[in-house]
């Protein structure tokens, strides 16, 4: 409760700052940023206990990918995600071909390398669930297993998922995977099992324990690339929003008007 009040205060302050002049504000962004870091650390320490209040729509989690910083050949984010969420617990069944396994194994985040047809410019970027504000997967799910949490995270309630895979048909980003095989040794934080659909959930277990970022973001930073920024899209002072003000960015398949929570710059 105290946290929420604190957050509101912060928001109010920032709103005033914007009103008084956006340009000025951006001018002093560095200073404000520095001021933000300290409370951020304290917040983190305070919030490192399990969540006891329902998530609210006061926050909306999102990612910003700066493709200029995303390195060719680096797959630190993918490996970190596989590790964090236990995707690497799945192993290729014997008798199965490599190609088929590649097509059937779970992938929550993947690296994509693009070339512009006109200019030949190469772009690298990670693709994952884009956490739409109006997610098609939620619309089509017959049982309501695919849902959007109040804080903007789009995920699957595996208790309700019947494995019909209609959400995978409907996802414009091909972000979802179906678990094709029996699974052993699941992590406590990430329950998963055969016959359900899953996808990136912005490390929801980390969110609920009040941690600062996601596995992919940490891994990218550890590699020194800092290509992915995680944060609250509704907090004008969050690092992700500061960065969004700074860089030109867009959504993938913007024409669908899904208002994605994952934004890309340089695409």
């Amino acid at each position: 409760m105290g946290k929420a009040t604190e957050m509101n205060d912060k928001t109010d302050r920032t709103d005033q700052a914007i009103d008084s002049g956006r340009r000025e504000f951006i001018g002093v962004a560095a200073g404000v940023g520095a001021a933000m870091v300290a409370p951020g650390v304290i917040l983190h320490a305070v919030a490192a206990t399990p969540r006891s209040q329902p998530v609210s729509s006061d926050v909306r989690w999102g990612l910003l990918v700066d493709t200029a910083k995303c390195a060719d050949g680096c797959s630190a984010c993918v490996e970190a995600c596989n590790e964090e969420n236990g995707l690497n617990l799945q192993t290729k069944p014997e008798r199965e071909s490599d190609l088929k396994w590649d097509a059937q194994k779970s992938v929550w985040i993947r690296k994509v390398k693009l070339q512009d047809n006109q200019t030949g410019r190469i772009t690298n970027l990670p693709m994952m669930c884009q956490h739409c504000e109006h997610p098609p997967c939620v619309d089509v799910c017959p049982t309501g297993a695919s849902f959007k949490r109040a804080d903007g995270i789009v995920m699957v309630d595996r208790h309700l998922c019947i494995g019909c895979r209609y959400c995978m048909m409907a996802c414009p980003y091909k972000a979802r995977s179906f678990i094709h095989d029996e699974l052993q040794g699941q992590l406590t934080a990430v329950p998963r099992g055969k016959g359900c659909v899953e996808s990136c959930n912005l490390c929801v277990h980390r969110r609920d324990y009040g941690e600062a970022s996601t596995a992919c973001v940490d891994a990218c930073a550890a590699e020194g690339h800092h290509a992915i920024v995680f944060g609250d899209l509704k907090d004008p002072n969050s690092p992700i929003n500061q960065k969004l003000r700074e860089l030109p960015s867009r959504q993938i398949r913007e024409d669908l008007e899904l208002n994605t929570g994952v934004r890309y710059s340089g695409v």
């Binding site: 969540r51 006891s52 998530v55 949490r149 929801v204 969110r207 324990y209």
Partner: peptide, 20 residues
């Protein structure tokens, strides 16, 4: 399970994690 998956509440005493 409903409050954890849908509302992110992890702190209550009835968690399956606690059982284990």
């Amino acid at each position: 399970r409903i409050s954890t998956v849908h509302q992110g509440i992890r702190g209550t005493k009835y968690s399956l994690e606690g059982c284990v």
